[in-house]
């Protein structure tokens, strides 16, 4: 089901299109779930909005102050999961991780921050269903883009 997914390796036409017109970028007012993944070292974040319905993911949007890799991956990932169920979204993360294995460590951090924000948005929905008053669920990133960059420079 994910055979034709192109990851942002090199600047192909699809990647350029995601750069020029990121899909599902922005916010959803009164979303069912709002999740944030935060890199405390760089203050880079991804905020992810998720609306669910009986079938699964009705709508998602994301926003970030991060780099273009984060934007392209966010654009691709949201596009893949809208209209699908949660299981499909989980598989999409796994499949994208496999493909990202071929990319740089920095790009993997960019992908992780997108996926973590999505997971945080689901956690926010779960917490609200339990009766918690939580505006958004924040997850802090273990790996930082900054440390990956420094490691790369040290090589």
């Amino acid at each position: 089901m994910f055979e034709n997914v192109e990851m942002p390796e090199g600047l192909n036409a699809e990647t350029l299109e995601h750069l020029i017109n990121p899909k599902n970028y922005g916010k959803i007012e009164d979303a069912d779930g709002v999740g944030v993944a935060l890199d405390e070292k760089t203050n880079e974040y991804v905020v992810f909005y998720t609306d669910l319905n009986a079938e699964g993911i009705e709508n998602t949007k994301f926003a970030t102050n991060g780099c273009q890799d984060t934007v392209v991956i966010g654009s691709m990932f949201t596009d893949m999961i809208i209209g699908n169920d949660l299981e499909y979204a989980q598989k999409a993360i796994g499949k994208m991780h496999e493909k990202l294995g071929e990319l740089s460590a920095q790009q993997q951090v960019c992908a992780d921050i997108v996926f973590t924000a999505y997971i945080a948005s689901l956690q926010n929905i779960e917490n609200k269903e339990k009766g918690e008053e939580e505006e958004m669920h924040v997850l802090k990133m273990k790996d930082s883009c900054e440390s990956v960059q420094k490691e790369g420079e040290g090589e």
Partner: peptide, 13 residues
């Protein structure tokens, strides 16, 4: 030939 609008700023930024 790649002129594009910068993406919108989120208030967290």
């Amino acid at each position: 030939g790649i002129l594009a609008l910068p993406r919108e700023l989120h208030e967290m930024t």
